[in-house]
Design a protein around this nucleic acid. Structure first.
Lengths: 212, 212
DNA sequence: CTTCTTTCGCTACGAGTCGTAGCGTATATC
DNA sequence: GATATACGCTACGACTCGTAGCGAAAGAAG
């Protein structure tokens, strides 16, 4: 991510080693979980020396963040022409990501560590949370442009809406797949989208927001 | 939980030690997080020998499950007379639970470990997930009795509804507080409840459920 | 091609933790 | 009192983390 690679003087670091280490980390993560991953094991899997790992990442935490963050780069926001289709697409992509075994143990363990380590938390925020929120923002902007949203949404309300939607979508999918331990079937995605969708497009019976 | 304490022959185990160990575990969890908790440290905090811990719990995982599961016993489902009030109460209770520092690191770490260890997963399910789902079921039954739900909900749809609602409520609150790292303010709870509520009480514009 | 700089693999190390074993002592029931 | 179990204490082997030092390899600069 920080690619300001100023080509220095001596022998450059092997890009192959970087890729091998990250792949080995994900592989070990899928097999053993966060607590089971050891730097020595990752080094053996990647075919490099353990010292090579510590030359690039200061600690196991940082290594795993990088190894996991790559997975989120696949997620895209496509304008499919309707809010419902867009939301279902996002949910489906996210569910597909979480269905991969290397994500299962990695994500929760990463969040768990981040809940304690402020530096790690900031890295997770920058590498994962913020990009995801930008995706939701894109989708919301597209829906707004199509006139599918209530027109009274100011720029401030938009930010809060995105936060709520993001937490709800991500949280529900994560909870179903990682905590309840059940898959997100197409029917579940459809039902969940229906649950989400209506209050965005129609006026709820009572709206007491603002009573803080 | 398994209180079938058949009074055996020799010296009985100290109930005080049990309580002290569990309390010390939660305390250490709040300060150090899952990865920072060590059995030796817990033993010192509780004022017992490390061997005493291993006489009761086979491993750190099991100990932490028991220490954390107690927190969920506080959650109650009160019939407040309206679906909206009931949901807000549940969300508020859950948010209050997750706001406590000993829950923050514990829950995600526990789920993370459970995502890999089947036995631990079963324990989490029995001690935490299932009781929570029963709470949601109670709330749904109360709302149904008050005629606040669409009457076409059969017993099978009810189960799936409860699953979706549970995953959505728990997931959204967890994600906001533990991943996004922001508090669940009263206004956020109100907005989130509004988001949840409408599709439960009114018919969505399109309902393509069943197209599996 | 030569020199220089950096990386690489290897081995070894101190510190810390896990979970277990053995012992003498304390505290209950029979 | 006899017996059986829990308890505190110490020590232990195995494992992991993260670091240090070494010679060798691989590019970059001249």
């Amino acid at each position: 991510m920080t690619e300001a690679a100023a080509p220095r003087k001596g022998r450059p670091r092997s890009a192959d080693a970087d890729a091998a280490i990250l792949a080995a980390t994900r592989e070990a993560l899928a097999e053993l979980g966060w607590g089971g991953v050891t730097m020595g094991d990752v080094a053996v899997r990647a075919g490099v020396a353990k010292t090579t790992l510590y030359r690039r990442w200061p600690s196991k935490n940082e290594l795993v963040v990088d190894a996991v963050a790559v997975l989120f780069d696949e997620l895209r926001m496509a304008d499919l022409g309707s809010l419902r289709a867009d939301i279902e697409a996002v949910v489906r992509q996210f569910a597909g990501l979480l269905a991969r075994p290397e994500s299962q143990a990695a994500l929760l363990a990463l969040f768990a560590e981040a809940s304690r380590d402020p530096a790690l938390r900031r890295r997770v925020r920058e590498a994962i949370i913020d990009p995801q929120k930008r995706l939701v923002h894109q989708g919301r902007a597209a829906a707004q442009a199509r006139g599918e949203l209530a027109p009274d949404a100011g720029p401030e309300a938009a930010r809060e809406d995105v936060d709520i939607i993001f937490d709800t979508i991500a949280g529900a999918v994560e909870h179903r797949m990682l905590v309840s331990g059940e898959c997100a079937s197409p029917e579940w995605i459809s039902r969940f989208t229906t649950l989400l969708l209506t209050p965005l497009t129609s006026k709820p019976d009572q709206n007491p927001a603002g009573s803080v």
